[in-house]
Design a protein around this nucleic acid. Sequence first.
DNA 1: GATGAATGAGCGTTCATTCAT
DNA 2: CATGAATGAACGCTCATTCAT
Lengths: 202, 202, 202, 202
Amino acid sequence: MTVIDLEKSEPRRRKPDSLERLKASARKLFVERGYDATRPQDIAREAGLGHGTFYLHYPDKRACFLAFVEDARAELDAHVRANRAQDGSLEQVIASTLNAIYDYSDSHPGVLNAAMTDESVIDAEGVQATPLLTRWGQEWAEMVRHAAADGRACNSYDAEIIGQAIVGALHQTGREASGAARCRGALVDNLTRFLVRALKPD
Amino acid sequence: MTVIDLEKSEPRRRKPDSLERLKASARKLFVERGYDATRPQDIAREAGLGHGTFYLHYPDKRACFLAFVEDARAELDAHVRANRAQDGSLEQVIASTLNAIYDYSDSHPGVLNAAMTDESVIDAEGVQATPLLTRWGQEWAEMVRHAAADGRACNSYDAEIIGQAIVGALHQTGREASGAARCRGALVDNLTRFLVRALKPD
Amino acid sequence: MTVIDLEKSEPRRRKPDSLERLKASARKLFVERGYDATRPQDIAREAGLGHGTFYLHYPDKRACFLAFVEDARAELDAHVRANRAQDGSLEQVIASTLNAIYDYSDSHPGVLNAAMTDESVIDAEGVQATPLLTRWGQEWAEMVRHAAADGRACNSYDAEIIGQAIVGALHQTGREASGAARCRGALVDNLTRFLVRALKPD
Amino acid sequence: MTVIDLEKSEPRRRKPDSLERLKASARKLFVERGYDATRPQDIAREAGLGHGTFYLHYPDKRACFLAFVEDARAELDAHVRANRAQDGSLEQVIASTLNAIYDYSDSHPGVLNAAMTDESVIDAEGVQATPLLTRWGQEWAEMVRHAAADGRACNSYDAEIIGQAIVGALHQTGREASGAARCRGALVDNLTRFLVRALKPD
DNA sequence: GATGAATGAGCGTTCATTCAT
DNA sequence: CATGAATGAACGCTCATTCAT
């Protein structure tokens, strides 16, 4: 039985893994130190690369951060889609979604926080597509509309507003919970009950 | 009877108000440009003072910003306390509080947003006392506890968590509303109904 | 008898012209962007080659530029030698030479300008063989000597000085003419009369 | 009789001579090393100042260079105006002007050369007002027109073209003369005769 | 108290060149 | 011959803070 040498078996050249290494280092440092305190040079050094290499893969620091954000978003998105109860009762949907988010958050500590860094920090001018939180708010709005259409939720709300409210509530409770030593069970329980009562049809 | 011209009386050069002038300039610039893009020098110049004078009144830029934040907090606090229905129905309390907040926000555009600048922006290391949002969350928690004790609100919640959730919901809806062109009436109406349903006793 | 298709014969990959391709690309870019703004990488890419290939043909960027300059010089030289009246009257010689120079300049726009890039731009330390302008001045000096020996020109001048003066006059009038919209006819006419009067024997 | 203490007698503060020191250092370094090889930091260091101080006086390196050029231009201009024969014969005007230029050039070695650094070196984009050489060409054009109007010079020339030709001739002979060890007397003599013959009326 | 000239650590970014493949 | 990922010295510039006046 042969063991394939993962390090050297690539047919062509040395495996150009430098982008992967930069991505990992960027995530690590953006999470640990934040955007401002992380220099492109630090990211490259952490990845064991010269700092010119950073600019082979990203046009500038901002682009690197935005790529990190997008990766985190996609990861969380995949995780949540895979783990939430798509069409159960309102309570099941909410509880399973919250649990999925907290699962991701627990196994990737600090990542969501770092990814939600305010856009104003990233670039004084220019425009970030849509802030992460707002995008997620739109997804919650979709969920609200969906549930209202099915009769599982009150249909007299403006779904956009309520979607943003939900995501804001999650964000702030999460933020505060990481400061205080708050247990996840209580968080999910309280928020689920809160949201279910607020949303359920009369 | 003579009225002393406070603006122009030559003998006492109109100076002792330099802290006030710095405060006003700092608020103006932090709101217009944000923390990073505002230099102590700009604040002093805007106030018609020399750069060094800034450091006579604040040990550093961070302290100046924190003072601005505290002033905004106190102002909003006073405004809300003066204008909300202290002990009416849950709905009255919530609606009047929201309206008071939006009143302040409308008459001091940009101030709350600037004051909520993420702490990570203000200083890479050090620690900001308690983030503004978290403090406001604690006040909402107090309201929740108070209402629950009176039987006006469901008493099975962890008030701290719900307080943070409420303030998070307000923050994010406000933020998003200023981007989209969302009308205040709909915001207050939706949020009030949402919170009242979530909080009211079974 | 078979003629090998140099353009497309697959077996021998159409490579040995890489130096030619680099030369053409280098000229194009040095003319369009100037020395500083042209990177070896750009030249190679423009030629459809890898970056490293550049260094197979030139030791460094400077050498590539110097080769471009030399090619331009040789081209102009050949063109002028082929087109000027070698031994006519002073006026004929001068007028035909000026016309030949302008012909070349018109059909290779920007090339002479780029080739005359100041030596200080090319390398802070090292020494360029002899600046192009000075070499051309020496050729004009030769012409002056020649004409003086034949009695067609005043022989009391230091030919070296006058040669440099002539080439300087041509350069600066050409430079200024491309900025202002000055017509070539007037340029040749004025310069020819100017030089003929200055040079003709008493 | 009192001797005023030039170092300390200023009524207000320490004499803010830092701009003068920067100017002197900038001139020295631009002359010795050229534009590209001179860093703002070097200029400041040479002046005994921190490198931030450079940016107190100039918005950027380019502005510093342009100020150097303008100073050199004004100095030469003043020197030439003070020393040339304004209205003598054509020969007197030309000879005295050339001598004045060479006087300046001898007593400020390298300055004119440095000041004439090609505009393309200073900024890839942007536009320098008018290149120094072209401006001087315009002044010679004025001289030519003036002399032609007085009957001291041939009036069938386009003065603009001839003015540029003259300044080009001076520039290139000067440039080449500093390379070769050419004596100033021969330069002035040859150029004066050359220009006088070219310009004088038939 | 008030001033503003002076400071220099620190930033993000570029590009000529090398060398393992 | 050819490649292009990798390098790191070097650059122009900013800005919070100090201190002699």
